[in-house]
Simulated scan of single mutants.
Amino acid sequence: MTVDVGLTHIALAASNLDKSIAFYARYARMVVVHDRIDTETDIRVIWLSDKTRPFVVVLFQLDKPKVILEPLAHLGVGCSSREEVDSLSKQAKEEGVLIKEPTDSGYPVGYWALLKDPDGHTLELSYGQEIGLTIDKT
């Protein structure tokens, strides 16, 4: 059995978990890895993961969640190319969830765009931030 160490999750309230699941599946390639009704609070709780590392976004059902992640606070997702950022941004614009068009901010920030999830939390799509390479250098 592996014991989790380090940063493992962020927890956010969501008013409609099914809408949030669809949003994060579409824009962050995340899937539900855990879904339950909390026995103490009777609140539905889900864990979403992109299955690339032991980290999940925990979403719990609340009728009127307070938006915590709004620019500049955000979740960041690395994309495989600028074209992927562009394609997802175009889709987000068509769906009315694009906050900021793709922008090239150069090294180390890279190419990025901002979207809002169904409750207004911000998701950043990026390419070229080189976070992994930066960590490897330290």
Results as ranks from 00 to 15, higher is better:
Ile10Asp: 00
Ser126Tyr: 10
Glu124Tyr: 07
Lys137Gly: 10
Asp104Trp: 11
Thr138Gly: 05
Thr134Ala: 15
Ser15Trp: 05
Arg29Ala: 09
Lys64Glu: 15
Thr134His: 11
Asp42Asn: 15
Ala73Asp: 13
Asp86Asn: 01
Leu115Ser: 08
Met1Asn: 03
Val32Ala: 03
Asp86Tyr: 00
Ser15Ile: 14
Leu88Ala: 06
Arg29Ser: 06
Pro71Ser: 04
Lys116Trp: 01
Asp50Trp: 12
Pro108Met: 05
Ser20Arg: 14
Thr39Asp: 13
Pro108Lys: 10
Met1Ile: 07
Leu88Cys: 07
Val97Gln: 03
Leu123Asn: 05
Pro65Asn: 08
Leu59Lys: 12
Asp38Phe: 15
Gly120Thr: 08
Ala11Thr: 00
Ser126Phe: 10
Glu130His: 04
Gly76Asn: 01
Gly110Met: 08
Ala73Trp: 11
Gly132Ala: 08
Glu84Met: 14
Ala73Gly: 08
Asp117Met: 01
Lys19Tyr: 03
Leu7Ala: 06
Ala25Met: 11
Gly110His: 07
Lys66Gln: 14
Lys116Ala: 13
Lys116Thr: 12
Pro108Phe: 14
Thr52Ser: 07
Ala73Arg: 12
Asp50Ser: 09
Val57Ile: 08
Glu95Leu: 03
Ile37Tyr: 02
Pro118Asp: 15
Gln61Thr: 02
Gln129Pro: 01
Met1Tyr: 09
Arg44His: 01
Gly110Ala: 09
Met30Pro: 00
Gly128Thr: 04
Thr2Cys: 04
Ile135Tyr: 13
Val45Cys: 15
Lys137Ser: 13
Ala25Asp: 09
Ala28Ile: 05
Thr138Ser: 09
Tyr127Ala: 01
Lys19Ser: 15
Val5Lys: 11
His34Met: 11
Val58His: 03
Leu59Val: 07
Gly120Arg: 08
Leu125Pro: 00
Lys90Tyr: 01
Ser49Trp: 04
Val109Leu: 14
Ile43Met: 14
Thr8Trp: 02
Met1Thr: 03
Leu98Gln: 08
Asp18Ile: 04
Lys93Ala: 09
Ala11Cys: 10
Thr122Asp: 05
Pro118Leu: 13
Gly120Ala: 09
Lys93Ile: 01
Ser80Val: 07
Ala25Glu: 13
Gly128Ser: 11
His9Pro: 05
Val67Lys: 11
Ser80Trp: 03
Val31Gly: 14
His34Leu: 14
Leu69His: 02
Thr138Pro: 01
Asp117Arg: 06
Tyr111Ala: 02
Gly106Leu: 02
Val109Glu: 14
Asp50Gln: 07
Thr134Leu: 14
Lys64Tyr: 13
Pro108Cys: 00
Ile68His: 10
Ile21Ser: 01
His9Thr: 00
Ser87Met: 04
Glu40Ala: 06
Ala22Cys: 09
Asp104Val: 10
Asp63Asn: 14
Thr52His: 13
Tyr24His: 10
Asp18Thr: 09
Lys64Met: 13
Arg82Thr: 10
Asp119Thr: 05
Tyr107Val: 00
Val67Asp: 10
Tyr24Ala: 02
Tyr111Pro: 04
Trp112Tyr: 03
Leu88Asp: 02
Val33Gln: 00
Arg36Gln: 06
